[in-house]
Design a protein around this nucleic acid. Structure first.
Lengths: 154, 154
DNA sequence: TGGGGGTAGTTGAGATTTGAACTAATTGCA
DNA sequence: TGCAATTAGTTCAAATCTCAACTACCCCCA
């Protein structure tokens, strides 16, 4: 498709390959080691990152980057495994809070160091600090409504 | 998850959000305008990019980043729509060539400019030429076995 | 020359995903 | 009030994806 310059092609190809590859690798390692997909992990991690250890289903869907319907199904599977639970909100009966069970927390704490190791080995450690800043900056430019980190002043 | 520095967090979060967001947007626009998923487009584009306008199924699966089985199914759907066809290789009866039909080529030629526009508007044009180089370089560092573009000598 | 081992590609069935209804609860406002 | 419009979340069925067989063929070497 000769509509992008070679340099642009490079960027685009690198983008699509790089992102798919890294996500795939992280997912595979997480599954092999702990039986969690990257999405499962994001669900658990997002809940646990919240000060009160609970999140509305919609907020969770939003920050874990999935549709509400998709979250419902995936969450159901985690419930079946005893890792999370639903808690009705009393003041607004429409909302449901997602919470971690003790087992869910335990698994997350087991998986987290490995996952962080994966993120390092497949992404962070392959970049110089400068490349890292540049990548973060490039992404910030791509995601609007994203808190922009300071870009290299050039 | 307090195992990455804030800067590393930034990189990682940006990476996951940025890549999913861009891929999603490109896919959505391609589907809305031409009824093709990004994967469908990659299939058509890969075939047409080959000098002899045909590709072995396995090579196609490899360069379009999908499993052979996934390609078979997705390709079937494109066959049903009359956009591509299978041609048996005569010298090796195991291999099947994927080819574009005239309709497939026509649709690709219609979709390509729009798709390139999308790539530009969601990725390329949001980056300065320098950021672009940095992003490409960062990705090259992430994808091993990827032809490395010249990195900023730092 | 024929059979073991490998390669290309497909099949099929179960799991997952999608997206449009749907239910139930809340809000706002006439 | 009381009813239309919104919001939260789930459900259901159809579409899609996955993964492990499976078929067909080619290659090599005894």
């Amino acid at each position: 498709m000769p509509w992008l310059t070679p340099a642009e092609q490079e960027t685009w190809l690198g983008f699509i390959r790089g992102s798919l590859l890294v996500l795939e690798q992280l997912d595979a390692e997480l599954q092999a080691a702990h039986g969690l997909t990257l999405e499962d992990y994001e669900i658990l991690a997002n809940i646990s990152d919240h000060e009160d250890q609970r999140m509305r289903m919609s907020d969770l869907a939003h920050s874990a980057l999935m549709s509400k319907s998709h979250l419902t199904h995936r969450f159901d599977r985690l419930v079946r495994r005893g890792l999370v639970d639903r808690v009705k909100c009393e003041s607004d009966l429409r909302v449901t809070y997602a919470v971690l069970t003790p087992q869910g927390l335990e698994l997350l704490e087991l998986a987290a160091p490995d996952h962080v190791r994966s993120v390092r080995s497949h992404l962070i450690d392959r970049l110089t600090p400068e490349q890292q800043r540049n990548l973060a900056c490039g992404f910030a430019a791509v995601v609007e409504g994203f808190d922009p980190p300071p870009c290299p002043e050039s």
